[in-house]
Design a protein around this nucleic acid. Structure first.
Lengths: 335, 335
DNA sequence: CTGAAAGCGCTAACAC
DNA sequence: GTGTTAGCGCTTTCAG
């Protein structure tokens, strides 16, 4: 314990800078020297002191991840996302500092305190007050989601507009004429969480393009909320034959309500879910779904962050194309 | 940006050490001086450099959290736990570095690299190979779970033995004579994850003490796994009247299988769940349950870690007492 | 290809 | 109650 770079240098009979360069690879080292140094490092069990390194190099090899653990977002989405971020970060030799608050102060603290090389922020809203603050920090940031004005920050997300449109198109192709979107809780809508709005926009466009009738209903993340939403849909569109559900939490309850109301899936109503594929597969009937590739998004976010940190590349926005997988919950419109 | 403690000292007309002491409160400062220093800090937007501080003080104000994101553990348990850890850590002015691998190398890296002041490790198994390694580190560690030999490390967990016993006692008191425990997946058992074993031990003791007949079945975290487990129970104990379910993931499928087999809850079989209360409440019928207080466990873990870091207190083991809440899925044994 | 040495920004003796 | 200063352990010029 507490062995320093000087100890290693002494043991290897070289200078401290040589040890440093062996470690960083930032200048050529002769093979014999490298061998001796590496030997000494192993023998002494030497580990560079992260703080000292950060102080001297102004790099921490730590990524900050702001992941507000909200209850109305499905946990498995968050977990997959976090998993993607952490494993991708390790790939770049970085660790992850986890912030679960969505407070500006916390993000300023870790950034201005030079605890992180970059920030990744989940769950960005259309007019997120954190965005302008991020812009002012000296570390680059990557946003998951799409604020109205990214102000030169990198963004990545599923292309929810394309997803909404794709769902509608899929149903139109199956001959459905009257379809409904059961979406996020009202609170999410009111936060102007951009994915919810983009989903609705795409869905609506798909509906229009195929000359369908479509309605949209918000849906709270509870048993009662789900049955309310279904009932509102049935009231507005009694002969609805297909549902798009963009609410992982309420999904099982929506399906249960359909059963209770005597509507069989898929014979009476087809269902397309927008959710992580494990959720779509975990229902009693495996659902046709558009995957939310949370882990992939996390990985891309890290790549974009590292591109800025390491290669100083400019900010960019990447929207991942949706993919629909048929699993049997969608069939041609009943006669 | 990049303002240092010297800038602050200059602006306030004091020495750097005075600024440092104002920040740390480690020695008395006259009111007027403090005012001027605080003013300068605010005006300049000064933030101490975490690395420099860590180097000089050998304290990072960061806690390492090892949270293997396994699929067979309910995500909401993990999330609650992580939430508890992060918010409690903030209470102590600490941030959290998240490790999602269960590899020894990662934990050694962050510890020996002096990235953290302490480690909290989830999901500890009976003979966890990480435990002896943790013992050798210079930072204190807190384990969630109970290894066979804690080797002087702090431990905290729900008292699963007491929980298993409590569930059996509750059912015995309601007149049930033949009961079953549907437990963790076989893989969890085979890892000798201690909570699963302690639960079984307590359940078995409760069964014996009340002269009941009881069987235990493992249960995979899948639809098929759940129906298999239920069927095995029904085969071994055809007139079973109560089930204890210790498997959050399979819980909904267990209930669905009971429905399919024509056993009504609670009229034909009573059900006690061991799971987070939100899971118990989220089922179609709210379940009588023993809560897994994941968030509280996380908070206690951090308190124990900080007790060791800040006050250098000795290691201890804390088992949280279980509490059973009746919610209507358990009734007196059918005649 | 290697070494010497000047910091990086802060803390904590040690002075007074 | 405050100031001076010697490190903390590493990176990175600058020299050779």
């Amino acid at each position: 314990m507490a062995t320093t770079i000087d100890d290693v240098a002494r043991a290897a009979g070289v200078s401290t800078s040589t040890v440093s360069y062996v470690l960083s690879g930032k200048r050529p080292i002769s093979e014999p020297t490298r061998q001796r140094v590496e030997r000494a490092i192993r023998d002494l069990g030497y580990r560079p002191h992260a703080g000292a390194r950060a102080l001297a190099s102004s790099r921490t090899d730590v990524l900050g991840l702001m992941a507000p653990l909200r209850v109305d977002v499905n946990f498995s989405v968050i977990m997959q996302f976090v998993t993607g971020v952490v494993s991708a970060a390790r790939t770049y030799g970085h660790d992850v500092l986890l912030l679960t608050s969505d407070e500006i102060a916390d993000m300023e603290r870790v950034a201005s305190g030079s605890m992180v090389d970059a920030l990744v922020m989940m769950d960005v809203e259309a007019d997120d007050p954190r965005v302008p603050v991020l812009t002012g920090l000296s570390q680059p940031a990557v946003l998951i989601g799409l604020p109205r004005d990214p102000e030169g920050l990198s963004c990545v997300d599923l292309d929810f507009a394309a997803a909404g449109r794709l769902a509608a198109q899929h149903l139109a192709r199956l001959g459905h004429r009257r379809i409904a979107l059961i979406g996020s809780p009202r609170a999410v809508m009111e936060r102007h969480t951009s994915y919810a709005e983009r989903m609705i926009e795409g869905f609506t466009r798909g509906v229009t393009e195929s000359s369908l009738e479509g309605v949209v209903e918000a849906c709270e993340a509870s048993t009662a909320g789900a049955s309310d939403a279904v009932d509102r849909v049935l009231a507005r569109l009694p002969d609805v034959t297909a549902l798009v559900v963009h609410n992982e939490v309420a999904l099982p309850w929506v399906l249960a309500t359909l059963r209770e109301r005597g509507r069989h899936v898929p014979d009476d109503v087809s269902v397309v879910a927008l959710c992580p594929s494990d959720v779509a597969l975990g229902q009693l009937l495996p659902l046709t779904s558009i995957d939310i590739p949370a882990q992939a998004i996390g990985e891309v976010a890290v790549e974009m962050a590292m591109a800025r940190v390491v290669r100083d590349e400019p900010a960019e926005t990447r929207l991942l194309a949706p993919r629909l997988v048929e699993r049997g919950s969608t069939v041609a419109r009943p006669a």
